[in-house]
């Protein structure tokens, strides 16, 4: 297929199909270049982690994948972001993009509605005529929350604990059957136990979904990711920080024998 050819930068990924790819991607906020020249191809049904020091643009990048950056007035980009070869920024409706590419945020953000309505929201919004009860049960089971909440589906989502809320958000994200689930530091506000639960959940979900996860926690990337991309930031003349992709490879390679000096320093904890 045509789009498999985009793996050229990362020979190791030839064996799987590419879901999302970027080509010479530059991201700007106004005049400020936040992220420059990113070329990467993200493989299907794998966990891909984006790591790097703060300000390196990793969150900016995943928000390009579902066009959430559209909400920021000054945002614009050049280069290409493709989804199965289709340019996400050309003649494509952002709303439709987000139905294919779901997202889980840093802070658990359930709607102030019942657990049931949180999950049913996506189906109702997209006008899907499925059996809602079944959808809710299936989504909650897949996000390993069913046993804990099956008797209180009508209670407010905000009454759950932080870890449960985040799993509810994951259940909500997968309820619309997206191809890709983006996760922006999904565990950064959670306790270690909840974090572990979510990590193992993510591993399971990778059997069905392509997962792209931003994390500042290197151990987390090492534990769960199949592929890891390391981003770095450098100060520009006016004191802001501009990010760029240093290295993208199988996680093992990033941590054991990185090609770049900067990557080695970062994973060894020498800066950042």
């Amino acid at each position: 297929m045509e789009h498999t050819a985009q793996h050229t930068d990362v020979p190791a990924l030839r064996d799987t199909e590419t879901v999302i790819a970027t080509e010479q991607l530059n991201v700007y906020y106004g005049d400020f270049l936040a992220l420059r020249n990113v070329n990467m191809a993200i493989p299907e049904r794998k966990v891909t982690a984006l790591i790097g020091p703060s300000g390196c643009g990793k969150s900016t990048l995943i928000r390009c994948f579902n066009r959430l950056n559209d909400l920021i007035d000054s945002f614009h980009l050049d280069g290409r972001v493709t989804y199965y070869g289709q340019d996400l920024y050309q003649d494509v409706d952002a709303v439709q993009v987000r139905r294919r590419i779901g997202m889980v945020f840093q802070q658990p953000n359930p709607f102030p509605k019942s657990i049931y309505d949180n999950i049913a929201f996506g189906a109702r919004a997209t006008g899907l005529t499925t059996d809602l009860d079944e959808l809710v049960e299936r989504s909650l089971k897949r996000s390993a929350l069913w046993e804990e909440v099956k008797d209180k589906l009508k209670t407010n989502g905000l009454s759950l604990s932080g870890g449960q809320q985040q799993r509810l958000c994951i259940a909500r994200a997968i309820s619309t059957e997206p191809d890709v689930v983006l996760m922006d530091e999904p565990c950064s506000s959670l306790d270690p136990l909840s974090t572990l639960k979510i990590e193992s959940l993510i591993r399971e979900l990778a059997e069905e979904y392509t997962i792209i996860i931003v994390t500042h926690n290197m151990q987390q990337a090492a534990r769960m990711a199949d592929y890891t991309a390391f981003f770095n930031a450098e100060a520009t003349e006016d004191g802001k920080r501009s990010g760029y992709l240093v290295e993208f490879a199988p996680t093992r390679k990033i941590f054991d024998q990185p090609a770049q000096e900067a990557t080695r320093n970062y994973v060894n904890g020498q800066f950042g």
Binding site: N66, L68, L71, V95, Q96, V97, R98, R99, R100, G102, M103, F105, Q107, N109, P110, F111, P112, F121, G122, A125, T126, C169, R172, A173, T176
Partner: peptide, 17 residues
């Protein structure tokens, strides 16, 4: 909170929804 808006938008809800 704007996170709640993001959650809806991130799921492919339209502005109206």
């Amino acid at each position: 909170p704007k996170q709640v808006r993001w959650a809806a938008i991130g799921m492919g809800a339209s502005k109206f929804q």
